[in-house]
Simulated assay, not measured.
Amino acid sequence: MTVTEQGVRMAVRCGDCGGTAVRSVGQFLMHGRDLWWDAERSCPHCDAYLCEHSGPEAIPADVREALLTAHGPARLRLAGPLTDPVAALRALREGTSAPLQEARALLAELRDFGLSGTAAEMAYWKALLAGRGVAAEVADGFGRAYRYVGPPELRGAGGPGGQPVRTADEFTAWVAARTAEELAEPFTFVVDLGGALRLAPRRSEHVACAGGDVVLSAGEIGFRRSAGDRADGGGREVPGGWEVGTVSNHSTGYCPDTASWPAVAAALARIGLPHPDAFTYAAVFRRCPRCAGCNLVREEHYACALCDADLPERWNVDPADLGA
């Protein structure tokens, strides 16, 4: 991936005439090194035009969400063995002004799995690392990202955040802290932007589990004891003899497509958990083009439950880009 500029066109309300205007936002590298974002608004009804912003300030969360939703995340990985971790740590601190402990956590993530974000952000990190003599590569992530599309009041309602589980040791510690009653039920899960599995009690809201952020997938997941400690398909020891029994993309907060499975499979493979080859229950979400209601399609009956209009065959719950 060589893209260092991305943009999204979104429908917004015109402040002058009240009609539907177009807001164009983007993020890019200025002079190949400085990370900028910009936004402008134009109305085809009254010809109003406004340049909202252009500069290196921190990108607003809604703009970043729109870019990730429309284009999907990019992933930054080291191009080879890290021979100078101090140089990499300095580059990460330079780019974030983060405390040393936080920068060390970023470095560990970069070494173990890679960092994820918008394509421009990952190109920015690549340039900073290159300036310190550390080679890295930017590639596509695991499909598109999904932002929260459920009831707005639930987004700020709080609830238990999901516990990130990235390694076999973290899963072993997490499952040891669960009771038999808890393990008898599925858990709420999301796969966060960094590709990590986050777990919370079953009745938790997915948006709380994700900390309000965009996700690569979301649903419910159940674990069961395998026949005993054994190796997975990659020759690694299965954590504590556990495996995934059931897993779905059933989340009415994020309504992820069934195409989000590769992100889930990658998160489980990262831990070393044996798992099915696909969702054991694949929820099919569609938004009605007539009444805008969100539907869970059952038995392949593609008709809106609210107005009986035909539903599209392709996922359409949150088309962030007007050009999509």
Rank of each mutant, 00 (worst) to 15 (best):
R202C: 06
T172F: 05
S226W: 00
V207W: 00
S24C: 09
Q163R: 12
H31E: 13
A127T: 15
G245I: 00
V3C: 04
D169P: 00
D169F: 05
P85G: 05
A127E: 15
E170F: 07
P44V: 11
E52C: 08
R23L: 12
V138P: 13
A48I: 06
D213Q: 11
C294D: 07
A61N: 03
R111P: 00
A227V: 01
F113Y: 15
R298W: 00
E52D: 14
S217K: 08
R298M: 02
V86F: 00
A157D: 10
G240S: 04
T258P: 09
S248E: 01
A66H: 06
L154R: 09
T188M: 06
V190A: 14
A139R: 15
L89D: 05
C43D: 09
G117D: 12
A292Y: 13
D308G: 09
G272V: 03
L193T: 03
V297Y: 05
R225F: 03
V165S: 08
E109T: 14
A208D: 02
A184H: 14
A21D: 08
A278D: 13
A105R: 13
D38T: 11
A91F: 01
T2A: 13
A70G: 11
A66R: 11
R23N: 02
P56M: 00
A127H: 12
R9W: 06
R166S: 14
P256M: 08
L110I: 09
R41S: 09
D192E: 13
F28T: 11
F189W: 12
L100P: 03
E109W: 00
G272H: 01
C209V: 10
F171E: 05
G212R: 06
D308K: 10
A123F: 07
A263C: 12
A139L: 12
P152D: 08
E313G: 15
G245M: 00
A66C: 10
V244R: 05
G156P: 04
L89V: 03
R77T: 15
T252P: 08
M122K: 14
A267E: 04
L268V: 02
A79E: 02
E94A: 11
A130C: 09
R90M: 06
Q101R: 09
E57Q: 14
R104E: 15
R230W: 00
G235Y: 04
G272I: 02
C291Y: 12
G234C: 02
W261R: 08
S204M: 03
H53W: 11
R290F: 08
R224H: 02
R166I: 08
G211L: 09
D140S: 15
A263G: 14
R90D: 11
T2I: 10
L67I: 11
R144M: 11
S251Q: 01
F28S: 10
G233D: 13
G162M: 08
H71W: 15
V3D: 14
R41W: 00
W125V: 15
A305Y: 11
C46K: 13
